[in-house]
Amino acid sequence: MSFREKSAWTMAAVMLVAGVFYAWLVSHGPGAPVIGPLVPYVMLVIILSVAVQIVLAVTSPKEAQAAADERERLILWRAGQLSGIVLAVGLVASGAVYVMLPSGNMLFHHVLGALIVAQIAEYLLQVYFFRRGH
């Protein structure tokens, strides 16, 4: 497994764990100020991301230093492009929910949720393209 595929797997896991943590925080105080769940979520994402990237870099130092080659750049670009569609759908859905249930706090949480889902989709699409070609 290539360094970038390992990185995509681990970052997908980080975003999933952090996303579940964020949803859990929101479910315990849906009307609370958004900064409440946002700060611990951001901190968790930063800490986990740095930790897994350090582990990956230590275990594969040469690959970690190397720039992405032409195939990898194409895969990263294509996964980013498709995850943009996931984000767009999530944002439209968030807007639709806001029209029916106008709550600024919930709109914020839904938009952030859409960002998290799109990010997870991007990493999983990277894994798919690394494994199956494109």
Partner: peptide, 16 residues
């Protein structure tokens, strides 16, 4: 390019 890209080329999964 990476070793994985050479493998993908040899397997016909990627056109360089």
């Amino acid at each position: 390019v990476t070793r994985q890209t050479i493998i993908a080329i040899e397997q016909g999964r990627y056109s360089p």
